[in-house]
Amino acid sequence: MSMVAIDLSGVSKTYGDKVVVDGLSFSVAPGECFGLLGPNGAGKSTIARMVLGMTSPDAGKITVLGVPVPARARLARRGIGVVPQFDNLDPEFTVRENLLVYGRYFGMNTREVKAVMPSLLEFARLESKVDARVSELSGGMKRR
């Protein structure tokens, strides 16, 4: 494992004439809890999209677990987790069904998702809720 989980060096992003991120540099150590805070329009979502490889920076360098982003973003995303402000879970699906759908987002087939599902449920302390519909879960359970 890399000694740095996330590393941004001189990262910049503009949209038209508007500078959204201006030469940002920071590192996050493995196991460190890290959050982006700031007012609306400060560039938090843009930074998150760049770290995930969904948006390319105009300048600078980003690595996630030593993997260059956006060049190898799909590989990098396999090693990180993101808790969005709002969940995108299907409330009519069960926890199991939502895990299968999200696994597909990360390029996993059904067999692969089913193989890791027990450890994911244990990690999130949701083993007893695997067949519960998301609409039945508390807000904290949905976040997990």
Rank of each mutant, 00 (worst) to 15 (best):
A73K: 03
V134S: 09
F106N: 13
K61I: 10
K142I: 06
C33W: 12
R143N: 08
G31W: 01
D58G: 13
R125I: 00
F26M: 05
T55G: 00
V101T: 09
R72N: 12
F106D: 13
R104D: 09
L89I: 11
R104K: 14
V116H: 03
P70L: 04
V67D: 01
A5I: 00
R78M: 15
K13Q: 11
L126P: 05
R125Q: 12
A59L: 04
N98M: 04
F26I: 10
E97L: 00
L24V: 15
D7N: 08
P91H: 04
L36C: 12
S12E: 12
R74F: 15
L36P: 04
V19Y: 08
Q85E: 13
S138T: 10
G10Q: 15
S135T: 15
S25T: 15
A29E: 15
V28A: 07
A71H: 02
R77V: 03
E92G: 07
A59I: 03
L8T: 05
V95N: 02
R104C: 07
S9C: 07
M108Q: 14
G16A: 10
L126M: 14
K44N: 06
L100K: 00
G31E: 00
V19L: 08
R125M: 04
M108Y: 15
K18F: 11
V69D: 07
A124M: 12
A132D: 15
R111F: 06
G35R: 08
S128F: 03
A29C: 06
S135H: 13
S9M: 04
G16T: 10
F106H: 15
R125P: 01
E127T: 15
A42T: 06
R78G: 13
T110V: 11
A5D: 01
V130I: 12
P68E: 04
D22C: 08
G31Q: 00
D87S: 03
K61M: 10
K13E: 06
R125Y: 02
F123W: 04
S2W: 03
T55M: 07
V130F: 04
G10R: 07
S56R: 14
E136G: 05
R49Q: 14
T63S: 08
L52T: 07
D22N: 14
K13H: 13
V51I: 15
D87P: 00
E122A: 11
A73R: 05
A29H: 09
E92K: 08
C33S: 15
M50P: 02
R111M: 09
L36R: 10
Y15D: 05
